[in-house]
Design a binder for these strands. Structure first.
Lengths: 344, 344
DNA sequence: TTTGGTACTGAAACCGTTCCCATTGGCGTA
DNA sequence: TACGCCAATGGGAACGGTTTCAGTACCAAA
């Protein structure tokens, strides 16, 4: 009945008293100095720990020397499936390495991002994973300068010299376009949220222009703010569908856009899916169910999250080589939406 | 240029020295005793804090007296949209109250759940939100007994007397069935993952039997393990479709099942959606896009997460009334999948 | 003048742990 | 025997804050 004594958790001193040893020895029982302990000491301590159900207070231990074991993560939109899967991958990797992940959602709010960053620093996190819009350069630069290991996910921030993990955008876009070309599409339109200096979007647009040119495809880019006003998208897509002589296809720059495009096509009439091809970056669970099945270029999202943690870990362990960049390849899943381009 | 001096963060002592006051006064500057400080003292401290960019170390301050401001959350499956939305709601509410949320994903692994619980306790969380399978009663009971405020989400755990927030299952099921009945369906099948003692599933099944009986609908329940073997589901649903004389409809017990059912129907042929009605508990972003549009009963997921935090908060503030139970209503969105039941 | 109260301030103890350093005892060696 | 060394152990300072408590200064009331 260890719980009947004191209402609060047992401390290392309780264990020491119970085992008849010093608190130093109990402290050594956890951590690397454990090998110093004799066999008898070790077993006595073990017994007391079990009897009292002692667990060291990580907060107290981090105060003096020991690390917190906390990794912070700042994401712009937790409801985005990309983010969720990435967080999941990062969480698995953290678990592997003995870290705990503290995730803050900034909801695309820059002020909130600053506040969350402050809070995270207050918890003495050992590393920081960032996947936000990048409007808060100064405070991030300062964190980096103060020696906090950081990793960017999905996009660079100019002026922030740190590791970065993301998709190989050029490869992904090329893969999509060569697939469309093979399927006989001759005109393509990339639909993206406003580029706004976000590097991954820039890269996708740039790769799109280059690659479509190389493949001799007619091409254009539609940059559009999603959100409240669905009509603008309907108009743009509708107009594009109208003036079609060639077999044409849409390339969606990410999962959010894919959803919006499917909604637009669906509003424009059920037969819209037959009037144009569609392929999207990001694999979504419902892609096989909609229309003829939506072709996708899947990002290795879980791997991206895991790699972010791995990069962080090497930095925490002391690696000081130049900032590196991990780009992972996308994978094509062809479905009905890009088959049989012989459309009027 | 405060950063050129010392590599590590300024401490309260640095501020005290800089302002020419005692560290006690600086400590008082934060927290409730602030009113004690004279005007001149307050402004001097303020200036030093700004000059040194001092932020109190929350970890250190929590050691003596002050709370950690951390709320822990244990979820069974972070990739489930229900979970994501609930986490998001909880996060907003935490932000409101000045808490930070530490989320651990147990991936439906009971051992992992125990480990995560231990870790969370090690960080001296102030409250715990639980949404897991409930196979780890003992350690949870112990946490509760030790005075940790806890809230269950979506389901009870028999033997764990604490607050609970979830869907009004009876109302949601009744709403779905009365809609189906109004639309002329005469036979309904509830499809659910294995009940396995999970209270929300039990309640949905119970309500289904009662309500279908009351409405004089032919009814049956299909309890099936999803995951790897999709064939079993295809068989079950296929067979059920075959032997149909009445207009019949499927009621999916949650979003995961809805996805599986749509996949099954889609595999069984595109016209399957016309052979039976379908309505699912949980609103999903793609429901309007699949087949004729899938009707849903939306759970107020964000509200559930927010309410969980609110319950926790009242407990943290000292409320000691009997464990309460917050049930929120589901909302019907009728779509094509439950229209025009006049099917052969 | 003494007393008492109020408004403000700081010294020191404390939180639970880790780390530095001193101590002890046993053993091999000169 | 005396010495040095090593393995094992413990005492106490330190970490960065909060809190308790003991002042100090000032002013009104007795």
């Amino acid at each position: 009945m260890p719980s009947s004594r004191s209402p609060s958790r047992p401390t290392i001193i309780d264990v020491a008293r119970d085992a008849g040893v010093s608190k130093t020895s109990v402290s050594r029982y956890f951590g690397t100095e454990r090998t110093l302990l004799s066999e008898s000491m070790r077993s006595r301590i073990e017994a007391s720990i079990a009897r009292l159900e002692f667990r060291p207070d990580r907060i107290a231990s981090s105060l003096r020397g020991r690390k917190t074991g906390l990794i912070g993560m700042l994401v712009a939109d937790l409801r985005n499936p990309y983010t969720v899967a990435m967080v999941h991958g990062a969480e698995l990797a953290c678990r592997e390495r003995g870290y705990a992940l503290v995730v803050f959602n900034t909801d695309n709010d820059d002020a909130l991002e600053r506040r969350h960053l402050d809070i995270l620093k207050g918890y003495s996190i050992e590393g920081l994973i960032i996947n936000t819009r990048g409007q808060n350069l100064a405070p991030l630069q300062q964190s980096l300068a103060s020696g906090l290991p950081m990793v960017l996910v999905d996009r660079h921030m100019p002026g922030l010299e740190c590791d970065m993990v993301g998709l190989d955008n050029a490869q992904a876009v090329a893969l999509a376009l060569s697939h469309l070309s093979e399927q006989g599409f001759q005109h393509v339109m990339l639909v993206t949220e406003p580029v706004a200096g976000i590097s991954s979007r820039e890269e996708r647009v740039a790769a799109f222009d280059v690659e479509a040119g190389r493949l001799c495809l007619g091409h254009q880019v539609l940059e559009i703010e999603l959100g409240d006003n669905a009509e603008r998208l309907d108009c743009a897509v509708g107009a594009w569908l109208e003036r079609g002589e060639h077999p044409r296809a849409l390339l969606s720059a990410n999962g959010v856009v894919t959803l919006a495009l499917c909604q637009a096509l669906s509003r424009l009439g059920a037969q819209s899916f037959e009037r144009a091809g569609l392929i999207g970056i990001d694999e979504l669970e419902w892609c096989s169910l909609v229309g003829p099945g939506i072709s996708t270029i899947a990002q290795p999202v879980e791997a991206i999250g895991a790699q972010a943690v791995e990069r962080l870990w090497t930095r925490i362990e002391g690696a000081t080589d130049a900032p590196c960049q991990v780009v992972l390849e996308g994978e094509l899943t062809p479905r009905g939406s890009t088959m049989a381009a012989v459309r009027p």
